[in-house]
Design a protein around this nucleic acid. Structure first.
Lengths: 214, 214
DNA sequence: TCAAAGTATGACCGTAAGTCATTCTCTCCT
DNA sequence: AGGAGAGAATGACTTACGGTCATACTTTGA
């Protein structure tokens, strides 16, 4: 009789999983999700298609894990912003810029995330992946909500606490919406600095609205 | 020798095209874009699959035309709002509510439109369809830009004219973003009145920002 | 050393978009 | 009326891709 997967094997398996993910990421970002086939990924890591399915249950699952890794990385990068002691408006702007920069590095990443949000309901993902999605979603939510609460506590924002959730939605919506429009609609001005300046202006107006007394 | 397509035939062809579109629309909205096959559509209108391709060059083309018809209808419905002589803020709110209501009637419609915006670049659409897309995009843009200009002219909004384009993007982004979040992320509160009230609050804040002097 | 566990393969399957040779049907000219 | 040719329709066929599985190879540990 045999025991379950030895330690070293487990490690090697995890390592191979990561190699596949890296390859998939590169391919997806270069050619887009749909055009990349599972065989393409297999070829790139010198495995057969069947082998890929020993590590991932579906192409969608690969996509989800690529995106989750990136989002986790973003959340890691964004944390220090809260240590600065800046006021809520500055934190907002800082957060928004990090978000924009994050997605401008790989525009296909943003498209994939949006697409994923749109269709996640109809995807068959592993329990583990679903857990990660919920975790990261909650993290994103609480990060932004906390900025609003911080602003309220400091007396910086005129906003009822029960409206924080609404404003959090508006904030995310605005940020994603502006990026979408620039990347996929605007033929003009998709230069990074242009997008950044637009985000600045929009958030400026929004924050003015939050500050306005009476 | 024969002449090109007689008048009556042309009319009948157009009629059949519309019948196919109606059937496709119903199927798409009921089961979603991907799950509906071209054969499903053909079956519903009692034609063979091949016949469908006499009227449309691809499934994507069918989708595009369904969406364009709906967007055109929306633009038709939204025009009267500008005849009311209301102030710019009211027009904004009115416009936003019509937009929200329009998409809440068929949630799949919104998903399809978002998806379309995300991938329109990589679709092979007919020249005619591409023209319609540009036309409708420009219409949407100019509608919102005009509200901003109107607000500036009335002295209602404190906003430089060169920032109108930016604000138009923010407005669209916010609106689409809020709807997206509610429909596809929020497990909680996707009730219509809830979404409407959220849109109200967000736009309220946004408009306050626009009105703020100094 | 050999049996079980684990890893890998690639032919194969199912499905769905899109094509095309063929057939049917209508129109209009003589 | 009749037939020629334009146009409408068909459905079997092609292609492409996600996913599966019987088979075979490799490692491990008793």
């Amino acid at each position: 009789m045999k025991l379950a997967l030895g330690e070293r094997r487990k490690r090697e398996k995890e390592q191979r999983r990561r190699i596949i993910l890296r390859a998939a990421r590169k391919l997806f970002f270069k050619r887009g999700y749909k055009p990349v086939t599972v065989s393409d990924i297999a070829k790139k890591v010198e495995l057969s298609k069947g082998a890929i399915y020993l590590y991932f249950s579906s192409k969608e699952e690969i996509c989800a894990q690529v995106l989750l890794d990136d989002i986790e990385r973003f959340h890691g990068e964004v944390l220090p912003i809260f240590e600065t002691g800046a006021d809520a408006s500055e934190i907002f702007i800082g957060f928004a810029h990090m978000y924009v920069d994050f997605f401008l590095k790989d525009r296909e990443l943003f498209r994939m995330v949006m697409n994923f949000m749109l269709h996640a309901n109809n995807m068959n993902l592993s329990d583990d992946t679903n857990k990660r999605i919920i975790l990261e979603t909650n993290r994103a939510v609480s990060v932004t909500e906390n900025i609003f609460k911080y602003g309220i506590d400091r007396g910086e924002f005129i906003l009822r606490r029960e409206d924080v959730r609404t404003m959090r939605n508006a904030f995310w919506g605005m940020l994603n919406g502006i990026i979408s429009l620039h990347l996929f609609i605007g033929r003009e001005s998709t230069r990074e600095d242009r997008i950044r300046s637009n985000v600045n202006k929009c958030l400026g107006i929004f924050i003015e609205g939050l500050k306005k007394t009476g």
